[in-house]
């Protein structure tokens, strides 16, 4: 299965990046990670080959949710947290549209948590870009549901008490069929992951670690060093190693995943990543390697990519429009139990 872009008309002429740049001035802060994602997105779009008018971007509220204004396709900047619900309506109504959701950590995981999990469990054919900067930016710097515990912000001068969400774990818990994590600064990886996500049929969640230079600068610096020992790259079919191959993921005697020096284990002991496993257990276990407090470790890549029944496809399958709609409806209006008054 998994052709997320099936049924979408192709562009009759080749498109270029510039055609996806709207006439609106981009108003993110200088140095914001959102610029990098926007640029990668606008470069990616022409490569998909689909007609420009058949892309819809729905966003919620927050810095990242300004995204649709800057892309010259159809788009709606909607309500805080509600973008997945609105996108569900768009996706059910129109199989010929590529539907993207742009959201942030506060938008998707706090005020919109319910809509996110339900869109994922239903497996609506939408692609969700979750910009995670671990802070509320638009409202000027309060802790978010992904902020580390103890974070001192304007609304948490004594340190926040909230335990942070791991968006990948949450999505896998909702049995999402496509879950990935990438970083704003790694354009190549970002583009690859987004391409895989949009081509996946069903709901795709891509968590994008995104730096907020104003309110949470450097939140991901540890992951951005060359060959950072904190980044655990996930590649389907490959043994999971990182830190220049010095560390690897193995399964311990108790059945749990462990990080070990590769020099201490046999190569055959290394866990081989299987993003296509029907069962989400391995993906879930890998998500648990994330240190949500300090990001001393974080798997990056596609955790899970499996096919399962797609809600909007199934919904449309149940619905049909009769050839003679008016006369069929007239029969329904009349009903079966009438009496005639002369």
């Amino acid at each position: 299965m998994s052709t997320g872009l099936a049924k979408i008309p192709l562009s009759l002429t080749p498109l270029n990046r510039k055609e996806f740049v709207s006439d609106q001035e981009v108003r993110w802060c200088p140095g914001c990670g959102d610029y990098a994602v926007l640029a990668a997105f606008q470069s990616l779009m022409p490569q998909l080959g689909i007609a420009r008018e058949n892309t819809v971007i729905v966003s919620g509220i927050g810095c990242s949710s300004r995204f649709p204004y800057y892309v010259d396709t159809y788009g709606m900047h909607s309500i805080h947290g509600r973008a997945p619900a609105i996108a569900t309506g768009v996706a059910i109504a129109r199989p010929d549209l590529a539907v993207w959701v742009v959201t942030g950590d506060g938008d998707a995981l706090s005020i919109g948590g319910n809509h996110l999990i339900h869109a994922l469990r239903r497996n609506v054919n939408i692609t969700i870009m979750l910009f995670n900067n671990r802070i509320y930016g638009l409202t000027k710097g309060q802790f978010s549901p992904t902020s580390e515990a103890g974070k001192v912000t304007k609304s948490s001068p004594a340190g926040s008490l909230d335990h942070p969400f791991n968006p990948v774990t949450l999505a896998l818990g909702a049995e999402a069929s496509f879950v990935a994590r990438t970083i704003d600064s790694d354009r190549k990886h970002l583009t690859e992951v987004l391409t895989a996500a949009v081509n996946h049929r069903g709901a795709s969640l891509v968590e994008i670690y995104q730096n907020c230079p104003i309110f949470n600068d450097g939140a991901f610096d540890g992951l951005k060093e060359v060959d950072s020992p904190a980044v655990i790259p996930l590649v389907h079919g490959q043994p999971i190693t990182f830190a220049k191959g010095e560390l690897g993921v193995v399964r311990g005697a108790d059945g749990r995943l462990r990080v070990r020096a590769t020099s201490d284990v046999a190569p055959s002991d290394l866990v081989v990543h299987d993003a296509h496993a029907k069962d989400a257990t391995l993906a879930f276990e890998l998500s648990q390697l994330t240190d949500t407090q300090t990001l001393s470790a974080s798997p990056i890549g596609i955790f899970r990519d499996v096919d399962r029944s797609v809600f909007d496809d199934q919904t449309r399958k149940q619905v049909s429009m009769p050839l003679d709609r008016a006369s069929e409806l007239q029969k329904l209006i009349t009903g079966r139990d009438t009496w005639t008054v002369l």
């Binding site: 819809v56 729905v58 709606m76 909607s78 309500i79 509600r82 997945p84 619900a85 609105i86 996108a87 569900t88 309506g89 768009v90 996706a91 059910i92 109504a93 129109r94 549209l97 319910n114 809509h115 339900h118």
Partner: peptide, 14 residues
Amino acid sequence: IAAAGAALGASYAG
């Protein structure tokens, strides 16, 4: 909320 949101999305989609 989602019921209204999806209806609005469908309306937007025609």
